[in-house]
Design a protein around this nucleic acid. Structure first.
Lengths: 158, 158
DNA sequence: CCGGTATATTTCAAGCATGAAGTTTCAAGG
DNA sequence: CCTTGAAACTTCATGCTTGAAATATACCGG
């Protein structure tokens, strides 16, 4: 038994700390997401993925390609197809063709879709504000910056 | 046009900052989760939800009830049923009955299940360490503490 | 023009996820 | 007893999600 007493390798300690952090992030995210899902359903009869798509499209009145959408939302191509299909069926989204490239489609909100999103956006922001109430503005700013750099490290890889 | 120049209500600024924070947390979580999912699949032929269940059961050699499991993992009851069904079919998990209460079942790892988890746990921790490499130990600790208090605020509600 | 490669999207099977409805069992109170 | 209500699970319909295979189109070098 000659294991060093407090000599747990520094890197090992940091590793445990990161694992702990990850598990907590995961829990927090799931709690918030599940609350949002529930409120979106009971309040507006819609789902989180649908809201995400509407939200993405709202920022682009000119529309986005399916692939842009899937890249932006970080979900698979096939996934977006299904969600957009349902939104189209509900009249909230329009699938158009791009001139000069018959492969690509351009997806954009209908007026009804834009109105639907506007009706939800305020409530959504307010819910987030409420659910993250425990995080002060300074903390939010710091955390946000950290996550931004974290993301940058990420996207530089390919 | 008499809108005050820098007089955006303080609460409004904080609200925007929290929304921004939430969106970044969401992106970061999705990126890490999708990377983990991919590595679990290619490296061990399993999935994230299965890993989560094995991980939860590993910490409880005496087993857990289905409801405990679903509460712990923050997923619905019906969901756990399906995942455990598949794990049982694969021989990694055992469904037992509790003496004195024929409703409750006790789910525990088989030896094979424990071995399977042990084989993955090290790699998993290492992956997290790599994926969160951008976060220093001090930051991790602080963030972790913040999320812990965040969670506490949460669970006190019911 | 032709063939090959790359891009944009859809389709499909399998698994995950929820919420609601159903089954069985337990625990009390009459 | 025996009903009534709660608790532990399961089942089911629906929708989300992925990754792989299929389709269709575009582009490019010969």
């Amino acid at each position: 038994m000659v294991t060093a007493p407090s000599a747990a390798p520094l890197e090992d300690r940091a590793s445990k700390e990161r694992l702990r952090l990850w598990l907590r992030i995961l829990r927090a995210t799931r709690m918030v997401e599940s609350e949002l899902r529930e409120r979106l359903k009971s309040g507006f009869g819609t789902t989180l993925p649908r809201f995400d798509v509407l939200s993405a499209l709202y920022r682009r009145p000119d529309g986005m390609g399916m692939s842009d959408l899937s890249r932006f939302l970080l979900v698979s191509n096939g996934n977006v197809t299904g969600i957009v299909d349902r939104l189209v069926a509900d009249g909230l989204v329009l699938r158009g063709k791009r001139d000069g490239d018959r492969r690509a489609s351009v997806v954009r909100l209908t007026d009804e879709g834009a109105a639907a999103f506007e009706a939800m956006a305020g409530a959504h922001e307010q819910w987030i504000d409420e659910l993250l109430a425990g995080v002060g503005e300074a903390d939010a700013r710091q955390l946000s910056a950290m996550l931004k750099s974290f993301r940058s490290n990420w996207e530089a890889e390919p």
